[in-house]
Every structure is written in structure tokens, then in C-alpha cells.
Nucleic acid binder design. Structure first.
Length: 889
RNA sequence: AGGCACGUAGCUCAGUGGGAGAGCGCUACCCUGACACGGUAGAAGCCGGCGGUUCAAAACCGCCCGUGCCUACCA
């Protein structure tokens, strides 16, 4: 191998870190807010600071990076804002676990010291995921990295809170909310995950006070009976009409509670009698308001029974359930137990069973904010892609309930509300008040709670750009161009950003929302650590290279479908990366000593060049179109096909004689065109494979600077060359026919064969004569003869095939076995007969001729004719072979 | 229960009214001066089932079966 040539295989390790560092140092990721170029902006869905890069991130950030790099090449001023989310509950949990290892709790060390610990923790590990994003090649503007807890964003949060409060869109109230007894905090409804469980339905007897009989209620949560304050039946239920207005005795506790009638009760379920526990069930709470029932809380914020639970006080809710069941049974109150499936709410952070609880919390009135957010999508100010998600968006927005935003944890934005110790006045302000505006009292205490993390991430598209200040960044880059996200946070996050963005900026936060798939494992399961089915993107990058991983994810990112990823496929695309590397290697071996290559004529005389230039135009069109419309898989596939099966398999193979031959002019032209096409390929591939494309770009003699500064090729329809494409197709057909025969007849690749091509017209004779070298090289042919069909005899000792209207004969003088050739022809004919029959049937169908569009009929006619000719030729051939076989026996 | 997807080659998936496709895997032959992470050829599919619309259906409509997801106040 000559000096300076590339190694045989692509070694990605050093290449990746080297170029990433270079790009960063050169400031290529930095956006200029004063640029005159058209803006293109994306805010990253901020990963949790506690997080590790998983495949979901890898896909999400690859797609964003593709768009950013593509738009930069297209001449846009691109801003990709990166950052992380403080993930209140999740992060607090992590740090609490750390403390627990030292036998400490956050309450023992106190709020301030605990927050100190969290910041220390974030200092230590918060950069982890950022570095992993860099590893992936993400071209974020790191100079603008933000964190939801940093000062600027905290200021936005306070500003929004105060504004919404003053507008009456934010309030404090005592409501039923979802409560996680493990995290010891309120949750928003959306943060509760319903999960189907195999439970039991218990029937319990509640005797009438009158002593005349009893009501039997059905419940899945017997422990809540301690807080029952009524039994409800349907008003029209004949079975129970007489009971309404009477009282029953609550077993164990002996409390007397009324029997009420309400149409909410489902007569067909259980016994048709419903125990009512207003303090621990959403619907029971509603009933209690309607019927003025007492509310008795029997479970506390830790999931432990309160003193109201009498003998069960202090027991955990599940321990209590067991004890109560035992006691009920002992007392003869337990009538029946049957298995029952029900859906139970779990905390999305810790998976504990959530407890409905009456509690004083802060809420956002979402409905008034949801209206404009729906309107914006309806008017296409924001386009959701694929559009099927719009429906879900509307349904969610229409049914949105007030959003509980206060959390009883420490890590997060402290609620900017103060309570006057003197008069109880509530003061909501961006800065701590020094005195009570009502009574002048000097002692004010800030609310202990913090805000839901999604409250701050809901401001992300404008808080990161400097809001509430009027910054050049906001003016240049808001609204952002597109938000790329998975559907699982469509409501958590996207919906909130829409509401907040429109309300505070008077403009949508993004013009497009591209909703991509979830990455699942090869069997379609959601990847999760507990299932142990995660494919670690970092491991994949180590093993196969970042470009291969990115390409695999992109190739599988078909709209509207989840991605089932397996390692095989990542490995497969590493082979593609290697293929590109070797194509460049071939080129560079031939470009040695060249610092400049020649100019390229608009239409070079050589067919191979004309063809590849035409094909290049098509792939340029295809890639830009696919990227513009978010068809990432098509983008990847188009390039894969073009690079491997057109550029490498045919074009480069056809150029080899020029590269190695004596003809200097042909050699130079080949070098020029091949290198130019390679440059374009690298640019087209750069968005998805940033590393290898930069590495090769730097090695090509004619390129300057970084590929990041190159221009994306412009699609020029005038450069499409249908004539060259048609000729090339014919040539490929002929070569394929030869290869097919060789393969079928088991002719060793080492044996060169002679070929005769009989053509219908002079043009084809010329084409094939001119391209004889290609036919000889690619078909492993010693000599090819092309002639007009009538003027030359059909060789007898040859295997025949038909390529278009060219009859191809592979001369196999001594080795042709007439019998096996006859068999091969029979097989081929059988296929043809079937296809030909189909076309004939269509063409003899009167209705088809009558009703189908003329161009379809014409196409069918042509096809039929072509197949018919081919069939005739082959069957004549078959007859000849048969007669030769029979006479030679 | 309702809603939404999906069911195409052994596997993973494109295709969406007019000739069944790709990648991986498999079989055979080949280290042919970029690449064995390679080359060439090949085998392989009643496009889930049944009806309907149409000259024409893998694609459109209906029903059924199977799978997945989301939503809901039958406790």
C-alpha cells in the first residue's frame, strides 16, 4: 500500500473526539443573535440532571442534530439551546438515598444543608449527561446551556407565578389531590400512572341501626371503611328504596352513618351499595359535598392510619387492611371475597400507590390557557407532525383540569408567596416583601413548598432565551422552529409550553412539533432498567461508533411507528460506515499527488459520469425533501442505496480502468468527477454521520475548512440526464444477465467467458461496443461482441438470456451442458409465462380497456409486448437446447 | 368499556389504488489491484382472516381474530 493511504478499516475512536473538540473550539455550534441569516432554532427537551443517556435521548438528540446540521449547511443561523432540568422529585430522591447510606434523613440535616447537598451533587454528576450528549455529536450551542434552577430561569418562574396570580389564573385552595405517601408530596393528575392490578373485591355487611337487616357494600379498599360517613345506593334501585334515609352501623367502630341515594351509584356493580369515604376517594368526596357528609381522614400523609382509625391508628395502610379483614371475618361482617381487576394510580417517580387526599395546594386554572393553545394548532400556527397527534392534543386540552403545581419537597423553585404572621395576609411577589401591605406586619413567612418541575420547563422556549428581558436572542429566535420530542411528554411538557408560550409571548413557542417514536427493545417492550432490556447507547458508540448508532436510529425513525432496536442493526450500519470509508480510500489512493483536480464539464462524454451526476441530482432532491418533511428513514435509506449500490457497486467499478489506465485525460476526468460526487455525498451524509464525513472531508484534496461550513448541494433539475440513465440501465441489464448466467451455471469467477450481444437496433450495438470494457470487467468477460440481430448467427454452445431487447449469449464452448441450460431456461420461462399471462388477461378485459386511464393501458401494452418478445426468444432458445441435447445423446 | 395504532420474506421493518421491496439472517461460489465490516448469484412472502367498493386492492370501507398503547368515576 502506498504511503499516506488510509488504513483498511475506519477507526472511529480518535476521530470522534478529535473533531468534536475542533468544532467546539472553532465555535461552529455558536449562534449569532445578530446574524442576517434566516433563523432556525430548537430548544432541547432538557434531560434530567440525574439522568444517563438512554436510547430515547440518543434518538431524540440525533434527530435534532440532523436538523441543526442540515439547516446550517443550508445557510441558516442555527441555534440549538441545550440544558438540563432540575427534576425536583427525582433528584431529591436520589440525594435522599445518598444521605440514607450515611444513616441520615433530609429532616435531620435541615432544609438549607440539604439543598447544599443537592447542589453539590449536581456539581458532581450534572455534567454527566451533557458529556454524553457531546459524545453523540450534538451540535448544541454550549455557551447558552441553561438549567431550570439557574438564576435567570428562576426569575422567569417567579415572574410567571406572580403574573398568573394577579390575573386570577393561579390560586391556592383546598382540594382533592393525588398524594404520594413515599415522596410525601402532592402530584399533578398527569403524574399518576394507572396500572391494572389483580385485587380483590370485598363484600362487607353494614347492619341497619333499626336491627331489621343489613346493607352489603362492595369495596377494594376495606381499610377506608374507618373513614366512611355514608352508604350510597341508586335512587331507583328497588332493592334498597326502603333503606334510604335510614342509618347503618359501621362495623368495628360502631359509628352510625346515613344511607343516601345518588344516581352516581352503578346498580349493576358489586352489590349496588357503595360505601362513601369522602377523605380518601375523588368521587366520594364529590358525593360528600353534594350530600353534606362529614369528612374523616383516616390515612395520613405517610400512608399510616390516623387516630381517627381507632384501634388501627399507627398501622401502615396495607397492614391495616390485613388486620381489618381478619377482624371483619371474626365479627362475621365479611360476606364474600372475589378476585377483581382494577386500575390503581401509581406515582410516576417512585411507583408507590398514590393516595387521594384533601389538601391545601396551589393550582393553575388551565382552561383559559388551553383555549388559545388549541386555537394555535387549529390555525396551523403550530403544526404537530405526524398530524395524528393533533387529535390527542385536542382531546387532552379539552378535558384539562386545574393543575396542581405545589410540591411538598425542598428541591425546586420555592413558591413566591408569603404569609403575614400577624394578619394572615397572602403576599405573592417576585421578591421577598419586607412588610405586610395590609397590616404593616414585619413577620412574613414564605410558603414552604416548591413548584412542580414542569412549571419551570413549561417556560423553557422563552426563559432560556432571556425572558422576561427583551433580548436579541428572543427577537431573533422566538418562536423556535421545531420541537422534537417523544409522545410520552406531549401533555406533561409540550402542552404546558404551548399554554405558557402563547400567554406570555403572545406567540406560539414553536412552529412545528415533531413527535417521534419511542425506542423499544427487539421484542417491542419499553426499555427499562428494571426489565434489564436496555441497550446502552454509550456501549453501542464504543462498539460500533457514533455514526453507526446515529445512522441506525435514523434509518428506523419512520413516522408514527415505534422503534424496535437490536444490536444487529447497529452493527449492520457500521458496515455501511466502513463502506464509505473504503470508497474514499480507493479515491484517495488515486488522488495522491493531486492538490487540485480538473473542472467538470456540464455533460461529460463518458456515460458513467453522466449517469452518476444525474443520479446525484435525484438523491439531492430526495434527501432535502425527506429532511424537510421529517421522513428521516427515507433520508437514510436514499443515501444508503445511492452510496452503496450506485456509487460503489457501479460507478467506482466502472472508473477503475480510467484510474489504472494510461489515458491521462480520462484518468483526470474520473478523478475529478468521482471526488466531486464524493464531496457531495459527504455533505449529504454529514447531518446523520458528522464524524466520518468531517474526517474524509479533511482528507480530500480540493475541500477547504470544515465540512460544517460547506453548502448543502442545490437540487438542479436541469442536470437530470434521462438519456444517460436509460443507457446505463440497459448496460446494467446486460451485465446482470451475464452475472446471472454465470451464477446459475456455476461458472467460477476465475473463468473469463466470451459474450455475444445481439441487438435490435444500431444504437444498442454502439452502446455495448463502447462499453465493452465495463461489460468485460464487471461481467468477468474475456471479450464481448455486439452486433445487429439479423447480421450475426446465434451461438449454439452458449447460455442465453434477454436483457430488454438485447439477446445476451454467454459462450460456454466446452462446458455447456444442454440439459442444465434447458432446465435453467424452463425455470425462467415459467416465471415469464405467469407474468405474461397476467398482462394478457388484463388487456383482453373489456372493462379494463374501457375504464382504466389510457396511460395505464399503454404501459400494460408495452409490458406485455416486452414480455412476449422475451418469452418467444427464450422458448426458441429452449427448443434449440432440447434438440441439441437430444442429438448429442 | 371507549379510542388509537399495528399485523407484508426466518427476524426487524419500508411501501399505501395500477408490475410484491429493503436491511439483517440463510444457501452456493469467490481473499478479482477500496472494502471478507467485502464481491457475485440464489432461495424465501395466498402482504392476519372474511366480506364489500373498483376495470384494478397489500393499500380504500365493514366485520372478525391477534398484538400494543392511551383514556375512563363500576367503588
Amino acid at each position: 500500500m502506498s504511503e499516506g493511504a488510509l488504513p483498511k478499516a475506519y477507526e472511529f475512536k480518535e476521530v470522534e473526539s478529535h473533531w468534536y473538540k475542533y468544532w467546539e473550539e472553532q465555535g461552529y455550534f455558536r449562534a449569532d443573535e445578530n446574524s442576517k441569516k434566516p433563523p432556525f432554532s430548537i430548544v432541547i427537551p432538557p434531560p434530567n440532571v440525574t439522568g444517563q443517556l438512554h436510547m430515547g435521548h440518543a434518538l431524540n438528540d440525533t434527530l435534532q442534530d440532523i436538523l441543526c446540521r442540515y439547516k446550517r449547511l443550508k445557510g441558516f443561523e442555527v441555534l440549538w439551546v441545550p440544558g438540563t432540568d432540575h427534576a425536583g422529585i427525582a433528584t431529591q430522591n436520589v440525594v435522599e438515598r445518598e444521605l440514607a447510606k450515611q444513616g441520615l434523613s433530609r429532616h435531620e440535616i435541615g432544609r438549607e444543608a440539604f439543598l447544599q447537598k443537592v447542589w453539590e451533587w449536581r456539581e458532581k454528576y450534572g455534567g454527566l449527561i451533557i458529556n454524553q450528549l457531546k459524545r453523540l455529536g450534538s451540535s448544541c450551542d454550549w455557551s447558552r446551556e441553561r438549567f431550570t434552577m439557574d438564576e435567570g430561569l428562576s426569575r422567569s418562574v417567579r415572574q410567571v407565578f406572580v403574573s398568573l396570580y394577579n390575573e386570577g389564573l393561579l390560586y391556592r385552595g383546598k382540594r382533592m389531590i393525588n398524594w404520594c405517601p413515599r415522596c410525601v408530596t402532592a402530584l399533578a393528575n398527569i403524574e399518576v400512572e394507572a396500572e391494572e392490578l389483580d385485587s380483590s373485591l370485598y363484600q362487607i355487611r353494614y347492619p341497619l341501626v333499626s336491627g331489621k337487616g343489613a346493607l352489603i357494600v362492595a369495596t377494594t379498599r376495606p381499610e377506608t371503611m374507618l373513614g366512611d360517613t355514608a352508604v350510597a345506593v341508586h335512587p331507583d334501585d328497588e332493592r334498597y328504596k326502603a333503606f334510604v334515609g335510614q342509618e347503618v352501623i359501621l362495623p368495628i367502630l360502631g359509628r352510625h352513618i346515613p344511607v343516601i341515594a345518588d344516581p352516581y351509584v352503578e346498580r349493576g356493580f358489586g352489590t349496588g351499595a357503595l360505601k362513601v369515604t369522602p377523605a380518601h376517594d375523588f368521587n366520594d368526596f364529590e358525593l360528600s359535598r353534594k350530600h353534606n357528609l362529614e369528612i374523616i381522614q383516616v390515612i395520613d400523609e405517610h400512608g399510616v392510619m390516623t387516630s381517627e382509625a381507632g384501634p388501627y391508628a399507627g398501622l401502615d395502610r396495607y397492614a391495616c387492611r390485613k388486620r381489618i379483614l381478619k377482624d371483619l371475618e371474626k365479627g362475621g361482617f365479611l360476606v364474600k371475597v372475589e378476585p377483581h381487576k382494577n386500575r390503581v394510580g401509581h406515582c410516576y417517580r417512585c411507583q408507590s400507590v398514590v393516595e387521594p387526599m384533601l389538601s391545601l395546594q396551589w393550582f393553575v386554572s388551565t382552561k383559559p390557557l388551553a383555549q388559545p393553545a388549541m386555537e394555535a394548532v387549529r390555525l396551523n400556527r403550530t403544526r404537530i407532525i405526524p398530524s395524528k397527534w393533533e387529535k390527542d392534543y385536542f382531546i387532552w386540552m379539552e378535558n384539562v383540569e386545574d393543575w396542581c403545581i405545589s410540591r411538598q419537597i425542598w428541591w425546586g423553585h420555592r413558591i413566591p408567596a408569603w404569609y403575614c404572621k400577624n394578619c394572615g395576609e397572602v403576599v405573592v411577589a417576585t421578591e421577598a416583601p419586607t412588610e405586610c401591605p395590609k397590616c404593616g406586619g414585619k413577620v412574613l413567612e414564605q410558603d414552604q413548598d416548591v413548584l412542580d418541575t414542569w412549571f419551570s420547563s413549561g417556560l423553557w422556549p422563552f426563559s432560556t432565551l432571556g425572558w422576561p428581558d427583551d433580548t436579541p436572542e428572543l427577537r431573533k429566535f422566538y418562536p423556535t422552529s421545531v420541537l422534537v420530542t417523544a409522545f410520552d411528554i406531549l401533555f406533561f411538557w409540550v402542552a404546558r409550553m404551548m399554554m405558557m408560550g402563547i400567554h406570555f409571548m403572545k406567540a406560539v413557542p414553536f412552529r412545528q412539533v415533531y413527535v417521534h417514536a419511542l425506542v423499544r427493545d427487539a421484542s417491542g417492550q419499553k426499555m427499562s432498567k428494571s426489565k434489564g432490556n436496555v441497550i446502552d447507547p454509550l456501549l453501542m458508540m464504543d462498539k460500533y461508533g457514533t455514526d453507526a448508532l446515529r445512522f441506525a436510529l435514523t434509518a428506523f425513525a419512520a413516522q408514527g411507528r415505534d422503534i424496535k432496536l437490536s444490536e444487529d442493526r447497529i452493527e449492520g450500519y457500521r458496515h455501511f460506515v466502513n463502506k464509505i470509508w473504503n470508497a474514499a480510500r480507493l479515491l484517495l489512493m488515486n488522488l495522491e499527488g493531486f492538490t487540485r483536480i480538473g473542472d467538470i464539464p456540464e455533460k461529460p462524454g463518458n456515460l458513467a459520469h453522466r449517469w452518476i451526476l444525474s443520479r446525484l441530482q435525484r438523491v439531492i432532491e430526495q434527501t432535502s425533501q425527506s429532511l424537510d418533511e421529517h421522513y428521516y428513514n427515507e433520508y437514510a435509506q436514499a443515501l444508503y442505496q445511492f452510496v452503496w449500490h450506485e456509487y460503489c457497486d457501479w460507478y467506482l467499478e466502472m472508473l477503475k480502468p480510467d484510474f489504472y489506465g494510461e489515458d491521462e485525460r480520462a484518468g483526470n476526468l474520473a478523478r475529478s468527477v468521482a471526488a466531486m460526487v464524493m464531496e457531495k455525498i459527504l455533505i449529504l451524509l454529514h447531518p446523520v454521520m458528522p464524524f466520518i464525513t468531517e474526517e474524509l472531508w479533511q482528507k480530500l484534496p480540493q475541500t477547504q475548512g470544515s465540512i460544517m461550513k460547506a453548502a448543502f448541494p442545490e437540487y438542479t433539475p436541469a442536470r437530470i440526464d434521462p438519456d444517460a440513465e436509460a443507457r446505463m440501465e440497459k448496460l446494467m441489464d446486460v451485465v446482470n444477465a451475464i452475472r446471472n448466467i454465470r451464477g446459475e451455471m456455476n461458472v467460477s469467477p476465475a473463468v473469463r467467458v466470451e459474450v455475444t450481444c445481439l441487438c435490435k437496433d444500431q444504437q444498442d450495438v454502439e452502446l455495448l461496443s463502447k462499453q465493452s470494457r465495463t461489460i468485460e470487467d464487471l461481467g468477468r468477460v474475456s471479450h464481448v461482441t455486439a452486433a445487429l440481430a439479423g447480421q450475426s448467427e446465434k451461438p449454439k454452445f452458449a447460455a442465453g438470456a434477454v436483457a430488454g431487447n438485447v439477446e445476451v449469449f454467454v459462450i460456454l464452448k466446452d462446458i455447456l451442458d444442454f440439459d442444465s441450460e434447458a432446465k435453467r431456461l424452463e425455470k425462467e420461462l415459467a416465471k415469464l409465462e405467469k407474468e405474461f399471462g397476467n398482462t394478457r388477461r388484463k388487456l383482453s378485459n373489456y372493462e379494463f380497456l374501457d375504464k382504466a386511464p389510457p396511460e395505464v393501458i399503454e404501459k400494460e401494452r408495452e409490458k406485455s409486448e416486452r414480455l412476449g418478445e422475451k418469452k418467444d426468444k427464450l422458448s426458441r432458445r429452449l427448443k434449440l437446447m432440447e434438440s441439441l441435447r437430444d442429438s448429442s445423446v
